[in-house]
């Protein structure tokens, strides 16, 4: 029952319909945020926004830009208002449609033809992400595949139709009501305490190393003199600190050609520039680790922390075809009373 968008347009145009030539791209991006079973989807003119959250302390966000799709149709003010009842009338004003969906099921669906690529991915081996297609990849074998997404109206299932080499798979994924308190974790972009851009593989490496101590929390410290930051963790077998230091003086805050290849950008808010002053935040280690899939596949990461300590990790991911997409994570810091005391002592001291 492969219905084309043109066929849909004839009778009842769906609220949303999109065609992608590669289900893999979508899969690659969505897999990065697959740390919780359900994702909240919101559809807009620009693209699809998938957000996943865990206990309101961690949030992952993948934005599937419309440029990832070969055709993208979103018709919020179409005939749905006329044909549907008053309830949907009210909801289809200017708000983009929002619903929840089982991310696990969606990922299963998207990779239904990609059995050659084990989803686990062995650690230490580059995934096919970076090395390109394998010899058994369908693109190499000359098979074409398409992936159609459609969402007819609020309350309707999300329909995923995958076609590959004459085989068509149709999946209808049940959509759920959006979560009641689905607010994003507030992140004050204008009050940044720290901003770092570096290669994501370094972060991935560091988090993997720290995981060996099986820690509870991850501590991020940053200082202006010497320029750099550190990730630390303490577990039962000892503690480990990953130090990222640049030898350049603290005055260098913007990216420049002469800057260390390690940290592309390092900006620390002026309040932390005083000697002995350090930025210090703690996060739940398991949460940060949940983002390690994104760390592994991303090329660059932007690490930002605002004055409250909310951490934002933004990953730049190159998907197949050379396009660049972004996956965001936000983490609420743990209240670290010890650290606050220490800081007060430091402030009180000379």
């Amino acid at each position: 029952m492969a219905t084309t968008p043109s066929a849909d347009r004839d009778d009842d145009p769906p609220l949303f319909g999109a065609v992608s030539s590669s289900a893999r791209q979508l899969y690659q991006l969505l897999r990065c945020i697959a740390f919780a079973p359900k994702a909240q989807v919101s559809i807009s003119e620009e693209g699809l926004r998938f957000s996943v959250e865990e206990h309101s302390i961690m949030e992952g966000l993948a934005f599937l830009d419309k440029s990832l799709f070969t055709s993208y149709n979103f018709a919020p003010h179409s005939s749905t208002a006329a044909t549907n009842d008053a309830v949907s009338d009210a909801s289809t004003s200017d708000d983009p449609p929002v619903f929840q969906i089982s991310l696990v099921a969606l990922l299963e669906t998207l990779q239904i033809f990609n059995i050659a690529d084990p989803p686990g991915g062995r650690p230490g081996y580059p995934s096919s992400f970076t090395t390109g297609p394998t010899a058994f990849d369908n693109r190499v074998l000359g098979l074409t595949s398409t992936c159609r997404l459609s969402y007819a109206q609020p309350g309707a299932p999300l329909c995923v139709i995958l076609e590959e080499a004459g085989v068509t798979t149709t999946c209808e994924l049940t959509t759920y009501e959006p979560a009641a308190a689905a607010g994003d974790i507030p992140f004050a972009r204008d009050q940044l305490a720290l901003k770092i851009i570096m290669r994501a593989s370094w972060l991935h490496d560091a988090v993997t190393e720290l995981a060996s101590t099986s820690p509870e929390r991850l501590t991020l410290t940053a200082s202006a003199d010497p320029v750099g930051f550190a990730l630390g963790a303490t577990g039962s077998l000892g503690s480990a600190v990953m130090d990222f230091r640049s030898d350049l003086p603290s005055t260098v805050t913007a990216s420049s050609a002469g800057f260390s290849s390690l940290l592309e950008t390092f900006t620390l808010a002026p309040t932390y520039h005083k000697p002995g002053r350090k930025l210090r935040n703690s996060y739940k280690f398991a949460s940060i680790r949940a983002a390690s899939r994104a760390m592994a596949v991303a090329t660059k990461v932007s690490i930002r922390a605002d004055e409250q300590g909310v951490l934002s990790l933004q990953f730049m991911i190159e998907v197949d075809g050379g396009k660049v997409s972004f996956v965001d994570f936000r983490f609420v810091p743990l209240v670290d009373e010890d650290a606050e005391d220490e800081e007060r002592e430091q402030e009180a001291g000379p």
């Binding site: 560091a206 230091r245 940290l263």
Partner: peptide, 18 residues
């Protein structure tokens, strides 16, 4: 503690205290 410090060329230092 037994302190093991892995010093990388690019400015990364990994310190383990076991």
């Amino acid at each position: 503690r037994l302190v093991v410090k892995m010093v990388h060329n690019q400015g990364v230092t990994k310190t383990y205290k076991l």
